[in-house]
Amino acid sequence: MKIIQKSILLIIALAIFGLNYFLEDNVDGYVLRVIINCGIGMILAMSLNLINGCAGQFSLGHAGFMGVGAYASALITTVLTLSPFFKTDLGVGCAILTGGLAAAVAGYLVGLPSLRLRGDYLAIVTLGFGEIIRICFLNFEQVGGARGLPGIPRVANFFWVYLWVVVTFVALLRLLRSSYGRAILSVRENEIAAESMGINIAHYKIVAFVISSFFAGIAGGLFAHFQSFIDPNSFVFNKSVEVVIMVVIGGMGSLSGAMLGGIIVTLLPELLRAFDNYRMVIFPLILIILMLVRPRGIFGHKEIWELFRKKASS
């Protein structure tokens, strides 16, 4: 079992590596961009899923965490110019990792109010946090202010983004399938009962925020080093809402659902380009229909493989 798991992971990593070269040679730039944006969307959705879907908290500030990761990593690779090492693949990888850690620290701070607030009230606080972050970037001339931060090394390609998609997926799945994951889920299910069974609910709410914002920060770092330019407008409130939509249509608490949601929300507006200006009517319409047909998201609480298992047995 363990060996099978490990070899599957290795095969996937190799496949991504191979696919990277195949796509760069055979697919046009626009399509590749969309594919990579889907990957970043998946990481964002999977990470937010931990707070909104699994821990049962409501965060509307995910773009803020993404922004922290993007700016922190971009600062290392551009403005600070510590060493030429940070222009190489490996150096950028380290910078992105640092961006994730910076976002995790932010996640810790934003997680604190979640101990006293819940539901809509927490959503307002996280929304406020996201806006504060964005406005800070807007006003700090050191990071380019409203003009943005150009000249970021374009290193994050298909390989790096999808490697992180796999890492995020595996890490979060393993977390959820452990005692820590059960503790986080129990907080969503019933706080009073969880506390009475010895779960320190305050601790696990913070843990959910920290881990989630770490991966959001990674997504931000990848985004920055893929676009090679970031400005505060990339991390507006709308972006946070977009990520919430990804999680909700995929199914709260379902990792594979979040991945599918990430793909749908990134891909649909692109596919609807043929409809020109009407696409911004058609896209929401599709979302509304989707929610009417599957009110609990496409996969509900379940993972995609659990859906099929259920069908096979009945």
């Binding site: 820590y180 129990s186 019933n190 009073i192 009962a193 969880a194 009475s196 608490g253 609480h301």
Partner: peptide, 25 residues
């Protein structure tokens, strides 16, 4: 340890997971 008058199970989790939450501490 306690039980609740108005049942407070972790309803979306499986029966065995409900019990395993208690081992977490």
């Amino acid at each position: 340890a306690r039980t609740f008058q108005n049942i407070r199970l972790f309803s979306e989790m499986t029966v065995i997971e409900n019990v395993m939450v208690s081992y977490h501490m």
